[in-house]
Amino acid sequence: MYAFLTGPMFYLSLAVFFIGLAVRVILYIRGLDWKLDRVAYRAHPKAGLKGALRSIGYWLVPFGTRSWRVQPFMTVIFFVFHIGAVIVPLFLLAHNMILKEKFGFSFFTLNPTLADVLTWGVLISAILLVLRRIALPEVRILTTGYDYFILAISVAPFVTGLICRYHVGDYSAWLLVHIAAGELLLILAPFTKLSHIVLYFMSRGQLGMDFGIKRGGMNGKPISW
């Protein structure tokens, strides 16, 4: 089982993840229609690029936009969640050992304490995100079972990872669950809302181009997000 999950399944999930998301990006860009979207993407590449980069950039910075600033609670849990969710899987020491073994390269690795903090951060902020969904009427009305499902599959690798980290219960069994959860996440990403891993950049970039090209970007001071 372990061999399967770390062998064929590992490669398969990575392939689905990368190819799937690449297809997402390609389909998104191919589906842009200057006339229907009413944005002259091609005619003004410079303004478009500037708008897109500003739009993506400001929103990647905590409190970088007015929206982040006026909702500080959400901003904190959002960034704690996302920073952990991106950094830990990529730069965890154990993960990089596997990388080195499988592909012959590795990234720099996280200080173990920091990795713990970040992982707990993901967990706690996920719980707060759930509570927020339940507590706030304006979020509750939007929430569907699907949203909880997405959150669950996103958090599962972290929960199982922590269980392994602290050697709770049967380590090797939990390790299998952890690997499976991670691979499930990779496989589902292109087919679910998790595709926002790339589509965030597309969508934000598109709106940035919209404002950058058409809605004033070439007309005085650029928009302050």
């Binding site: 389909l27 998104y28 860009i29 191919r30 589906g31 842009l32 229609d33 229907l36 979207d37 929206s67 006026v70 909702q71 959400m74 969904r133 706030l136 304006e138 979020v139 939007l142 929430t143 569907t144 949203d147 809302k193 595709s195 926002h196 589509l199 965030y200 597309m202 969508s203 598109q206």
Partner: peptide, 27 residues
């Protein structure tokens, strides 16, 4: 025929986070 990737994506990736609520004066 007219709903292309931009609006399709918007509809699909909306995270239902509700951060737009307060931005709307009608809300």
């Amino acid at each position: 025929k007219t709903m292309k990737s931009r609006i399709k994506t918007w509809l699909k990736i909306c995270a239902h986070c509700g951060m737009c609520a307060d931005s709307c004066f009608l809300y």
